[in-house]
Simulated assay, not measured.
Amino acid sequence: MGWQAMADMKIEHEEGPSGGRYFVRKDGHEAEMTYSKAGDGIIIIDHTGVPTALGGQGIGQMLVQRGVEDARAAGKKIVPLCPYAKAQIEKHPEWQDVLR
């Protein structure tokens, strides 16, 4: 997928008192990354799911990156329990400052 197509994808964010999710809707499908809050300063990424129809487009990575950027901006730390999110953060040393 070209950068322009990725730039056109809107990552949405919903948050409640105990957690939230980042998600992308495209072509009638939805990819998401969910998290729980542990106290004021810790976000636990517990699930990343990308349907087969949206696979191979870098959407999962975009969701993790957005979570990392938002955590950094808010001064929070991430515990990546989701194996996918953990692997993505391990592949990107520039994201590891937010690891708890």
Rank of each mutant, 00 (worst) to 15 (best):
L99F: 02
I59K: 01
Y22L: 11
G55H: 06
I59V: 01
A53V: 02
P17A: 14
E14L: 12
P51N: 06
S18P: 07
S18M: 13
Q65V: 10
H92T: 03
E94Q: 13
K37V: 08
D8H: 12
W3S: 15
V79Q: 05
R25P: 00
R72I: 04
R21G: 03
G41D: 13
D40Y: 00
P51H: 03
L63R: 04
V24H: 09
E30V: 08
R72P: 09
M9L: 15
K86P: 02
I42W: 00
G55N: 09
K26M: 14
D97S: 07
A7G: 14
G39W: 01
H29N: 14
I45V: 12
Q96W: 05
T52C: 10
I44R: 14
D8Y: 05
G39I: 05
A87I: 00
G19W: 00
E12L: 15
A71W: 04
S18E: 15
V24E: 12
Y22V: 03
G60K: 06
W3A: 15
A87E: 09
H47E: 09
E90Q: 13
Q88M: 11
V64P: 08
S36M: 10
Q88E: 14
G39H: 03
I11M: 01
K91G: 01
E30Q: 11
D8S: 14
